[in-house]
């Protein structure tokens, strides 16, 4: 017991952890659990037999495992939907990161009248709920004959205020002398941006890309409204079609298959996050320190 206490004490000293930090740590752990529990439940359900999905005793981890649900997922055109999702999320994310960087750079580094007002307007646009603009936008796309097309899936997401914000914060702290050196070296505004500023903005670019890719990949409402044929559906929209008849065995089966599909759906975002975790945290913290 004494040995354990000594170890705890040493650990606390090494990590500069005091008793005052304990409530923060407990809240943090609770939030982490609240985030992690549904994830465990999703993966666990995806590996269960239909009859094990709803049990009187909660089974956090399945007693017996099956991969049938994953096989069944592929009975649907998920490959096509995944391709659509990849095109939609990939292109929209790339473009919104590029445009976000350009706008953020302009708002942080260029002097022009109304600059701060414009930024305030950008931020104010966050207060307009998507639901307000989504129907007029849908009608617009239908009128242009762009319904059920890639441009319909991609275009509404290519400008993102969050990306603008994160890049603006980064570029506010960008060393002026590097920019000036490039000007003396003969770089105009475009070459200055593309050859000097953008390559140095890797951290905010990765942070914005991870967040926006996840948002775009999981986007449900807009793709649901704008895609009218099966071949243009994205993964989230397609998976929603797994909804089974209520109160039947197929409902239970539907659950586990849906969970298998959602597990597959979450893999790219998670992989992206874990791969780029270091840069992601760097990018976010840079933004937050500057703000």
């Amino acid at each position: 017991m004494t040995a354990l206490l000594t170890r705890v004490r040493r650990y606390m000293d090494e990590h500069r952890f005091t008793l005052l930090d304990l409530p923060i740590w407990l809240v943090g752990m609770a939030v982490a659990f609240a985030w992690f529990a549904p994830f465990v439940w999703m993966v666990s359900t995806s590996l269960k037999y239909p009859e094990d999905v709803m049990t009187a005793q909660i089974e956090w981890l399945p007693n017996r495992i099956t991969f049938d649900n994953y096989v069944k997922v592929f009975e649907y055109p998920v490959v096509r939907w995944a391709f659509n999702s990849l095109v939609q999320a990939g292109v929209a994310t790339s473009l919104s990161v590029l445009f976000g960087a350009m706008a953020g750079y302009g708002l942080a580094r260029m002097r022009f009248p109304g600059r701060d007002g414009l930024f305030a307007l950008f931020l104010a646009s966050l207060m307009i709920p998507t639901e307000v603009s989504i129907i007029p936008m849908l009608l617009g796309f239908i009128k242009m004959g762009w319904a059920s097309s890639y441009q319909a899936l991609i275009l509404p997401s290519i400008g993102n205020v969050f990306a603008v914000y994160i890049f603006r914060q980064f570029f506010l702290g960008f060393p002026a002398e590097i920019e000036e050196a490039a000007r003396v070296d003969g770089a105009g505004p475009f070459r200055l941006f593309f050859l000097i500023a953008l390559p140095l903005a890797r951290a905010p670019a990765i942070a914005a890309a991870v967040i926006l890719f996840t948002l775009n990949w999981n986007n449900f409402l807009w793709p649901l409204l704008v895609t009218f044929d099966e071949s243009m559906k994205t993964l989230p929209v397609g998976i929603a079609a797994f909804t089974p008849v209520v109160g039947t065995r197929t409902q239970l089966e539907g659950f586990s298959v849906a969970m298998a599909a959602v597990t597959i759906l979450s893999v790219p975002s998670l992989a992206l996050f874990f791969l780029l975790q270091r840069y992601f945290i760097q990018g976010i913290s840079q933004g937050s320190i500057k703000s």
Partner: peptide, 12 residues
């Protein structure tokens, strides 16, 4: 040509 206090080299 100008030489800056912080050198202002392009890090990348």
């Amino acid at each position: 040509a100008m030489v800056f206090q912080s050198y202002a080299l392009y890090p990348h």
